[in-house]
Design a protein around this nucleic acid. Sequence first.
DNA 1: CTGAAAGCGCTAACAT
DNA 2: ATGTTAGCGCTTTCAG
Lengths: 330, 330
Amino acid sequence: MMDVARRAGVSSSTVSLYLRKPDAVSPAASQEIAQAIEDLGYVPNLVAGGLAAAGSRVVSVIVPSIRNAFFAETVASLQTELAADGLQVMLGHSEYSEHDEEALIRTALAWAPAAVVLTGLNHSKAARKLLAGGGVPVIEMWELGGQAPIDMAVGFSHAAVGATAARHFAQQGFTSLAFLGARLSQDRRAAARAEGFVAEALRLGLPEPQILNHPAPATAEAGAQLLGLAQASPSEFQAVACSNDLIALGVLFECQRRGVAVPGDLAVMGFGDLSFSSTSNPPLTTIRPSGDLIGREVARLIKACVHGAHPSETARIVDTGHLLVERKSG
Amino acid sequence: MMDVARRAGVSSSTVSLYLRKPDAVSPAASQEIAQAIEDLGYVPNLVAGGLAAAGSRVVSVIVPSIRNAFFAETVASLQTELAADGLQVMLGHSEYSEHDEEALIRTALAWAPAAVVLTGLNHSKAARKLLAGGGVPVIEMWELGGQAPIDMAVGFSHAAVGATAARHFAQQGFTSLAFLGARLSQDRRAAARAEGFVAEALRLGLPEPQILNHPAPATAEAGAQLLGLAQASPSEFQAVACSNDLIALGVLFECQRRGVAVPGDLAVMGFGDLSFSSTSNPPLTTIRPSGDLIGREVARLIKACVHGAHPSETARIVDTGHLLVERKSG
DNA sequence: CTGAAAGCGCTAACAT
DNA sequence: ATGTTAGCGCTTTCAG
């Protein structure tokens, strides 16, 4: 930066000013500086900038799994939005472990980030303390309800999603229901959908739906196996809600193999509205959570914080809701 | 850090030393320092550390799309490996735009990263200059062949993948082939697979395969439409290679709707070996590129660089190859 | 509108 | 094994 200043015949503070508020520098000086930057191929050092300004332009994002299409979508839209404001995304994934998450949060904080974005409302006690103490804005995403957020939250109620699924089946007159999920003990949001499903069915006076849980990650393979289990059970089900479209896809595949007609013999519902869901056989009825909307809303909140305008109490929780997408599978 | 030092009754440099090389500090002092850190809830400032040490513990990773399962897998394994060494991943996605990529590289460099990881071998001229100039290790991944890497590379030849597909079909006696791809003008690696497919077919004396290209991103929907196009064409095909398992899935769906038997009437091959490919109807024959292996190898190279051991010339390019996974679709 | 000066919190010789 | 001393490259008052 000194080199640039020298070459442009100004002081380094003028260059610094030019870089942040170009309008505050005279046109003549701007010319010279721009030229010098160009000639020297100067790239500002954001590390030094972050130190001097006591706060870097980094946003730490911690998700359970980046392989998961839901979070990938959110991270993508978040990154796009933040990049437009010169904010960088630092990514970590906890593999659904609270312990790993805590370690990630610790490192994240060490970067004096502009904000930290977490997935879900459940974190270790130590993590909550770390976050509550530091003056860093924290946004929890992809979950609402249950407990109060640390600071801000963007998401929706998973119990409500489960309830929507139950109501949809009840309206069609189904009475024998099941919920098919994977890793329900680790994925608390999926578990909340299952609970919401069961609770709503009960409230509507239906027999208690069964929850079938697969120990492996949510894949089509797991879905296929889950369907096998469901069919093997003494009381066959009329309708199954899956915790994820990938599981629903596996169910569809396995139904085809076994010759069970969907939705004739069995109604199937997914969650996520993934890219293949509209074109499967039959097209999948599912619930869309809008991962990219979540990303955009999180970005909006972060930008507000960065610009000094701390959102009011009322604006600190945004519910992105969910949408039932009725197609042919149930 | 000064506070910790004071509380522990030592100097700040001892604390710093303790944090980086705990063995170099006396047990007594270590005790005191650990206690002080605990009491104060001290979190070191990595920004300051990065500035002082002239090189931060950040690795910048730039992929075309984080929504893409291939890159998501690589980023996931890379992040896991790097986190074990205290390295942070900064993520950017270019949406297949060389221009956006250049901007991302510029920002990445501004963080004085320990390494930058790029996808593919094609970058803008300015980007290449930026990278070649700075003393930062750069690793290009997911592609080999065509042109020389800037610095290091981990990946495989996409032309070879296409050739493998062509050979596989040729061995089964098919003569009328097609390649189904999406956004081939943007996704140069997919285009390379298509070219490799055509070239190998020609080399084997088969009629020139047709390339069908869909303008939208690679999804099952696009695959279904592509199959429609393929069937509509005057010469029906005996076998189609898809640039991606998602496209192949769409093809499978559409075949089912149209009553074309797979592989009886049409052989279908994918690329990627995604999670649903083993359980579709029929299970998909595909080519597996090993996204997580790429991530691990990239991490290995980066760690070597960080530890000062710059890999020798011979070890700067690692070919992760590809694997034909023969299932039932063709 | 521009420049001088004082750090931001830490690391890395070097000296002890 | 520990303390001392200089910065790292930039931002930010505060004068001019």
